[in-house]
Design a protein around this nucleic acid. Structure first.
Lengths: 117, 117
DNA sequence: TCACTATATTACCATATAGTTATATAGTCA
DNA sequence: TGACTATATAACTATATGGTAATATAGTGA
């Protein structure tokens, strides 16, 4: 990660920002087992149609999902599966931290993480 | 990443959010070759003392850096080096995207990424 | 103690954005 | 064409947060 100039840092930050939203993670999570249309994602995520559509649009802009309209539906799918590697890494870090009393109290409440791979 | 409940997603999102800020990435970047005190980080990052201090406080809360005051200085260091793995992954993804004309135009301006490892 | 330096914090402003409601756009089928 | 469905967008509100300036806190040494 060394030698990153300011412009690059901004890009990296933007990428992380795309992942820094529970609803978007939920959508990505829902897309793990294949493409889904907006209606399905709306139902699975529990969000409103407008909100899910907005997040999908953003994920598409950031290149995290692929968009394909078929008939009257629009299907979204994961553009780059390595996004899951990122999540695995983060889950690992958070999971590890959950085992350290001291750090938990700093940020997290004492809840369980279900991190089945 | 499957089987993440809402609480877990919020945690993961928060973690990504901590990384979704250029100045914080800059600070983490500066810490790559060892601990630094606030003055050094302030100078290296080009930010104001107050601002850098605020970001450091946040990074500490999120468990990304370790804090240790010695004398009149406070030294920060990377708490978990796997944060760099995350950045590498992201840089790789962004780098890959930079080579695909179509996606670049969606989000990025035509600038160069210096991604020397 | 006092002066000095390093760091943290507070109060504030400006901006970004998640969510909602309502509406627009577009495809399908009668 | 017109009714219907699926998705996107616009306008708006509320909230979060990055940045700054000013101040507080704390360690050091005379």
């Amino acid at each position: 990660m060394s030698k990153l100039d300011d412009k690059a840092l901004q890009h990296v930050a933007k990428y992380f920002k795309a992942l820094a939203e529970p609803m978007r993670l939920k959508v990505l999570n829902a897309l793990q087992d294949g493409e889904k249309n907006v209606s399905q994602l709306t139902e699975m995520s529990g969000g409103s149609q407008a909100n899910v559509s907005k997040h999908l649009s953003l994920l598409d802009q950031y290149g995290l999902v692929k968009r394909e309209s078929r008939g009257t539906s629009v299907f979204y799918s994961i553009a780059d599966p390595s996004v899951y590697e990122l999540c695995e890494l983060v889950c690992g870090q958070i999971g590890a931290r959950m085992t350290q009393e001291a750090d938990i109290s700093k940020l997290f409440t004492n809840t369980q993480l279900s991190m089945a791979k």
